[in-house]
Simulated assay, not measured.
Amino acid sequence: MIDHTKKLVQEKFNTGNGYSYDAEVVYGDTDSVMVQFGTPEVEEAMNLGREAAQHISDTFTKPIKLEFEKVYWPYLLISKKRYAGLLWTKPEKYDKMDTKGIETVRRDNCLLVKNLVTECLHKILIDRDIPGAVQFVKNTISDLLMNRMDLSLLVITKGLTKAGDAYENKTAHVELAERMRKVDTKQHAESQSLVS
């Protein structure tokens, strides 16, 4: 259905058919399709989204129906299930900054990373200040290197469900837990030899 939707959107919504831009399906996953219509106007994107939903729904067997849901503008698509953007459900004002699958919502990062990414996204998406985002990252790195940062911002609280060598990807917390286990094992063995 996603491939069918992509084909119909790109066949219909293009300059050859009198539209101002060539539409492109940039993301499709399970129950949603994201289309870049090319317009910088939120209201026009909403109208095109509704038109596309109706056009495609007419080709599906009932009761299957595609519905227009929202516009993201601006929008950063990082990878599958990882994106951020300003979410609009009405053309007058965005509803919120919406993030999926990135460090602002993930629980396996320290607070510093979450705060850094959140502030950068705010500067990029809301303030439209990319140089400001870059400068904020540089200042944060400088503060970190100069020990001008609260160390509690660097704490990661995470549980492991298996031994460290059983993980395919050795992330920082897996590596640290494995080192701590080895130190604990060594200290336990040393304390046993002192007792005997």
Rank of each mutant, 00 (worst) to 15 (best):
T39Y: 02
C110N: 15
I156L: 06
G159I: 00
I78D: 07
K162T: 11
E175D: 10
V26E: 00
L154R: 06
V113W: 01
S152N: 14
D31I: 05
D150L: 09
D150V: 10
A53H: 05
I156E: 01
D31S: 14
D31C: 04
A52F: 07
L176P: 02
K12R: 15
H173F: 15
D95T: 05
Y27T: 00
A189Q: 09
Q54L: 11
K12P: 02
D58E: 15
T59A: 05
S142D: 06
K81D: 15
D58C: 07
K170I: 09
L176K: 02
E103A: 15
G132D: 10
N147I: 05
S196F: 03
P131W: 04
N47H: 12
G85I: 01
E51H: 04
L77Y: 15
L8T: 08
L151R: 08
V42P: 01
I124T: 11
E11N: 15
G49C: 10
R148K: 14
H173M: 13
K186D: 05
N139K: 14
T5Q: 03
K80I: 08
L151H: 07
F68T: 03
A133K: 03
T99M: 01
G101Q: 14
K62C: 08
K114H: 01
S79Q: 13
T161L: 09
R128M: 02
E41W: 01
E168T: 09
V134I: 15
R148L: 05
L8C: 11
